[in-house]
């Protein structure tokens, strides 16, 4: 009887979870990892010429690729990034470069974007354009497609982590959670975790969940099943000793 109920709960839980985890496996994120980013010359909002090499030597970088005339994902992507960054772990260990991939964008366009986002005076954020965008986007594996009917680029929200040595350590495609951002920040700081889980494979009873804010594993539901045999044994012992207590005297 108990076993049947138990199984029903298990199966119901499984169904619930299976329906909730349809996230497709994004293989794009796994490309170009540990390759060097193209050292494009940059023009920043202060009109100063600089380059990736100079910027990344100060601090590891998060590179967001956008264009200012975007009517799609760019604005929500940047707003979400700004908000997530405030709550992410080690958020001071990185700088953010927002770079336009649209040759039509000038540094003035970028400055007004920074103003709209209320980030023009934030030293952590750099808004920039470059005259060699093609080799740069190739080096990070980003491929926007021009849609002439809409007069828009068809593209993903694209955030790249670059460590101090200029290597791509991790990419995030799509608007993502603060947790994923923390993982990205850990990776550009070369914090190594010997394992990770494939997206969309979070089983209900996983034993551990990696928490990037602390860099530690937190116990998952599955761990209960490993502890269960010991708990049941202790309970059985108590029960058996209660019903079989040696008669005194």
């Amino acid at each position: 009887m108990f076993k049947n109920t138990f199984l029903t709960i298990l199966i119901a839980g499984g169904c619930f979870l299976a329906s909730g985890q349809e996230a497709p496996l994004s293989t794009g994120e796994e490309g170009n990892i540990y390759q060097k980013i193209y050292n494009a010359p940059l023009v920043t909002s202060t009109k100063q010429a600089t380059s990736f090499e100079k910027l990344r030597k100060e601090k590891p970088l998060l590179l967001g690729l956008i264009f200012t005339r975007c009517s799609g994902v760019c604005n929500p992507f940047l707003l979400q990034l700004k908000e997530n960054l405030q709550f992410a772990a080690n958020n001071n260990s990185v700088n953010v470069v927002v770079l336009s991939f649209d040759p039509r964008d000038s540094i003035t366009d970028m400055n007004s974007l920074a103003q709209r986002l209320d980030l023009e005076n934030d030293l952590q954020w750099t808004f920039a354009v470059t005259d060699s965008i093609l080799p740069l986007i190739q080096s990070v594996g980003f491929s926007p497609v021009w849609d002439s009917a809409k007069q828009q680029y068809d593209h993903d929200a694209f955030l790249v982590g670059i460590n101090k040595d200029g290597y791509i350590t991790k990419k995030l495609i799509g608007v993502r959670s603060a947790n994923d951002l923390s993982l990205l920040i850990s990776s550009v700081n070369n914090i190594f975790s010997p394992t990770y889980r494939l997206p969309g494979t979070n089983a209900l009873f996983s034993c551990f969940n990696y928490d990037p804010t602390t860099g530690k594993n937190t116990p998952g539901l599955g761990l209960l099943f490993i502890a269960l045999p010991a708990v049941v044994t202790v309970l059985l012992l108590i029960l058996l000793s209660y019903f079989n207590a040696p008669k005194v005297g």
Binding site: K3, F6, L7, L10, I11, G13, G14, C15, L17, A18, A203, L204, F205, S206, C207, F208, G222, F225, I226
Partner: peptide
């Protein structure tokens, strides 16, 4: 065995965690 049976009888709806 219970977890295995749950997966067996759920016909793919419930999948176990390999590490557990």
């Amino acid at each position: 065995v219970a977890l295995t049976a749950a997966e067996y009888f759920s016909k793919g709806a419930f999948v176990n965690d390999a590490l557990l």
